[in-house]
């Protein structure tokens, strides 16, 4: 039996110039937290909306739990909790009325009243009208609504937006608990630290195209080293012109390099040129992500 929860094949949505997604091949496995990374307008929300059948793809296919997102959408959505990036709520309702309505519309699935526990955990006063809530509290309402039926798949679009750091931490804990429970989370965000904190794998979407999918630790463990070498006398230009090495900056007596391979050769050349000191650091997810969005699209990664 397939372990895949989400699967898209050549998924394309085109709705105007410079917008949409193109040939997105995604695969999210059961029990994982999949981080979907990309800046605003890259196509994260579009992908989620196709998965939830808010609109159909122009071409390609999307399925969840082996069921077609367009043809079996109703069945699928019984098992999905969704937090949209642009949350719109019924302003005149009190939060508890909203949750009861949501519970009522979803139908009974054994999680009746679970929203109370979640709301208490997020310190949300459910007796107040939604219109009186701050942005952060409205976001809490959205988070509770997404988690409240204990879905098999959670699709979260920027779940911590507007939340204070303490609540952010609680939400991330909740995501980890969902994973520990063997359920799946599709976690869309551009906040890299939280993706690094909770996700097993990440997909990076750039201008509507999925440019990389990798395990978080593998991505971080890639030998992308940035090093600054200080020399007695600055070596001639082009001395590090070898495969996998980019010269980022040249100072009075220092050179900063980004090294993805041939590290021993770099060190040999440095030693032959009277190196005095060396500072290195591994790139975090953020820098790797930025590398993908650099001018050359991170081809060196």
């Amino acid at each position: 039996m397939s372990n895949q929860v989400i699967e898209t094949r050549a998924l394309t949505v085109y709705y105007g110039k410079h917008r949409g997604i193109f040939d997105v091949d995604l695969s999210v496995e059961k029990g994982e937290v999949f981080g979907f990374l990309g800046p605003n307008g890259a196509g994260k929300t579009t992908t989620q909306r196709v998965l939830l059948d808010v609109f159909p793809p122009t071409s390609g296919k999307a399925s969840i739990f082996g069921m077609d997102c367009q043809k079996q959408g109703v069945e699928l959505r019984k098992r999905i909790g969704y937090l949209p990036g642009e949350l719109a709520l019924y302003a005149n309702m009190r939060a508890h009325e909203f949750f009861k309505m949501y519970e009522y519309l979803r139908g009974e699935n054994g999680s009746k009243g679970y929203w109370k526990e979640l709301a208490a955990r997020l310190d949300l006063d459910t007796s107040r009208k939604i219109s009186q809530f701050s942005r952060g509290n409205k976001q809490k309402v959205g988070v509770v609504a997404a988690f409240m039926n204990r879905p098999d798949l959670l699709i979260l679009d920027e779940p911590t937006g507007g939340l204070d750091p303490l609540v952010q931490r609680t939400v991330l804990e909740m995501v980890r608990e969902v994973k520990a429970d063997g359920r799946t989370v599709f976690f869309s965000s551009h906040i890299l630290s939280e993706v690094q904190a909770v996700c097993d794998r990440v997909g990076i979407i750039r201008e509507g195209q999925l440019v990389a999918t990798q395990k978080v630790e593998e991505m971080i463990a890639q030998r992308i080293n940035r090093m600054t070498m200080i020399f007695e006398e600055l070596p001639v230009e082009g001395i590090f012109n070898i495969r996998g090495v980019s010269e980022l900056e040249r100072g009075e007596k220092s050179i900063t390099l980004e090294v993805t391979e041939n590290l021993p050769e770099v060190l040999t050349i440095a030693a032959q040129n009277k190196i005095m000191d060396i500072e290195t650091h591994n790139l975090g997810l953020e820098e790797i992500f930025l590398a993908y969005y650099s001018k050359d699209g991170g081809e060196h990664v």
Binding site: V54, K78, I80, P84
Partner: peptide, 14 residues
Amino acid sequence: EDGRLEMLVTLPLA
């Protein structure tokens, strides 16, 4: 337009 319909159509309703 105000976004509430997106919440509704993502519920298990045809």
